[in-house]
Amino acid sequence: MSDARLQAIVRAHPLLSAVLDRFAAVGLPDAWLVAGAVAQGVWNAATGRAPTYGLKDIDIVYFDGADLSAETEAMHEARLRALFADLAVKLDVKNEARVHLWYADAFGNGLEPYRSSEDAIGTFPTTATSIGIRPQGDALGLCAPFGVDDLLAGVVRPNKRQVTQAVYEKKVARWRALWPELTYIPWDQTQPPSTT
């Protein structure tokens, strides 16, 4: 992980660090701890709130193109919920290889199949939440297609690669009530972020 500040926040977070300490037991291909739990941990550290303030769940994604069944995904989620049963938070586990099978029913627009977990992370609704972490040797590996500047600066900017305006604005409304200190970029005032 390139940013020492981000690594320090994650390591000090009681839930994120507990998941990462046992990540080898996750045992899923191309697995990452992703999205809101990471971003919200950073926002809480920046605003002086408790690490778990506002946290609805912890998301773990993986990529298994050889098994696209909902049953297998549910089995992995049940296994990981048991593994992390001591943590006081809901765990959400998704196989990014099968998202295209249900996405249109859930959100109204279809999408092309992802090529990897990293590809999926690059479509998450904001630049700050388009982030994944996992252990990598003695440090943390980082997947941050848009970098970590928005995340560390408390900027919520839409990632228009896939998300709709309605989904983005719903997230912003929830987050604004919890973290009013953040800078929220309106949907119509931003261009699609460039990947660097």
Rank of each mutant, 00 (worst) to 15 (best):
A8N: 07
A88T: 14
L16F: 04
A50I: 06
P186Y: 05
F146T: 07
D149M: 04
L140W: 06
G122C: 06
R98M: 06
I131V: 15
K160S: 14
R134T: 03
H76M: 10
S194V: 15
K94A: 06
Q40D: 07
I58K: 08
L6C: 02
F84T: 10
A166T: 13
A24S: 15
P193N: 04
P180M: 12
V89A: 12
L91V: 13
P125D: 00
T72K: 09
G108L: 03
R11T: 07
V99I: 15
A104V: 11
R79I: 02
G54S: 11
S2F: 09
E73G: 05
N44M: 02
L152A: 02
R81H: 10
I9K: 04
N44T: 08
A177Y: 07
S116F: 09
W187I: 11
R49A: 05
A31N: 13
K94R: 15
A46C: 06
S194H: 01
I133G: 03
F107A: 00
L33K: 14
A45H: 15
V156H: 01
V42E: 03
I131W: 00
W175G: 01
P193V: 03
L20Y: 04
Q162F: 09
C143S: 14
K56E: 13
S130E: 02
H76D: 02
D3T: 11
A106R: 14
W179K: 13
A18D: 09
D138M: 07
T127E: 00
Y168D: 00
I121Y: 02
I133T: 07
C143N: 08
V163P: 05
R5H: 08
G110H: 01
N159G: 11
Y53Q: 04
A66G: 15
T52C: 08
D30Q: 09
A97S: 09
L80I: 04
